[in-house]
Design a protein around this nucleic acid. Structure first.
Lengths: 218, 218
DNA sequence: TGTAATTTTTAGGTTTGTCTAAAAATATTT
DNA sequence: AAATATTTTTAGACAAACCTAAAAATTACA
């Protein structure tokens, strides 16, 4: 079982590794965690002992598979709690980070499993960031129907289901084409219509339209 | 801002003070917290410095008003989270204590205010223990209509609203009289009927009956 | 009331996670 | 390639929260 401080290091090293997959420097870690490089070195040595990362002096740090899974699980908890705070407690999406920073360290597998179910298994958090599954896997970016996405999720149009010219003209008028980035601003629970943003303009679209657009989540 | 360890001491001292209001010994604190008396002494001295309790060497400890309020607030959070876990995530009432022990230390007034609202301002936790208000006040035990109580809440019958003989005979047949202890086993959300336990027997009663029985919560 | 038993505190030490200052390794520049 | 600059690690210290062992105060009781 990791301590709170250890969990925070692991989570931040995970994020840093996205940017520099070849290895993360202790200085970068210290900066991210707003601490001194010497403290980061100390902690990194302890985490290497615990086999959640490999550390080569002066060369930097890489998460092990175990470390990667642990970090992903913390991120999973953080993002699930954010969904709870926004969807259930009606916080604004920009108010939830600090609280989720605390909640992500609650230890209970059962709690997270039930929270996930209570929230209807969300795949993105209120900022549109993906929520990894319980095995720590981030969903491979695959095409989905626009109608299956949630509020604030972002994606790139990668195809259409119905390809009649009426439909394509409809898309053309709204500057939607293959490669176009789309963000869901609002989604109505009742009729599944949505407001989407396309190149800084917002459009209202019906369920029928959304069911005919393939999107790759980004 | 108190540390997690300090909060746990405070909460437990609060509970111990219920049993011995004249002062709590450091040994009793150590036993409750499963630590050594010397550690309890150390912590108590630190908490006295922080003005949340008064400490007289060899004589024991009493919470200050500030300490009392802080402790009550931790208990409030613990019990609100228990309600959430049972009512929203469908945990059993005996599975929630450990998780609530962690959640009670999340620092955010806004979170607790919204959680309270989300849970519709419960006054008791799933074990029937009272939830103090945001000022740290425990509701004075006062009579309430049975229909206003929640599942698992316990009380003593202290009066009736409608006192026609039909009604009193109805109560008599079920061994309900002034002084009788009643526990709500089940409460139906739809028609507000309930199953109650009276001297080890369970009875089904309608909303109309429940609206005419005054109960003192225990 | 004085001695024994118990409770409580003090003294000194450990671990965790941090710090500063200095040393060592690596990288850069001329 | 040598000198300089930068990055990174090591060494030693500190606060929090705990421990053990010993001392001091209180309580029990003969």
């Amino acid at each position: 079982m990791l301590t709170l401080a250890e969990e925070n290091y692991l989570k931040n090293i995970f994020h840093l590794q996205q940017k520099s997959p070849e290895g993360v420097s202790t200085n970068a870690i210290a900066e991210k965690l707003e601490t001194k490089p010497s403290s980061a070195t100390d902690m990194v040595q302890k985490l290497a002992e615990k086999n959640v990362l490999t550390y080569i002096k002066y060369k930097g740090v890489t998460l092990t598979e175990e470390g990667r899974k642990t970090a992903a699980n913390i991120i999973r908890k953080h993002r699930l709690w954010e969904v709870f705070l926004v969807e259930k407690l009606h916080f604004k999406w920009d108010e939830v980070h600090e609280i989720a920073e605390q909640l992500e360290h609650i230890h209970s597998e059962a709690l997270i499993a039930r929270l996930d179910q209570f929230l209807a298994f969300p795949t993105v958090d209120p900022h549109g960031d993906p929520i990894p599954d319980s095995q720590g896997n981030f969903k491979k970016t695959e095409k989905k129907l626009l109608s299956n996405l949630r509020k604030l999720q972002k994606g790139i149009c990668v195809g259409v289901k119905e390809s009649g010219s009426d439909f394509l003209q409809y898309l053309g008028k709204r500057n939607i084409a293959i490669g176009t980035e789309i963000t869901i601003l609002e989604k109505d629970d009742f009729d599944e219509s949505m407001t989407i943003e396309v190149s800084h303009k917002s459009h209202f679209i019906t369920k029928k339209i959304a069911e005919n657009l393939y999107i790759q989540i980004i």
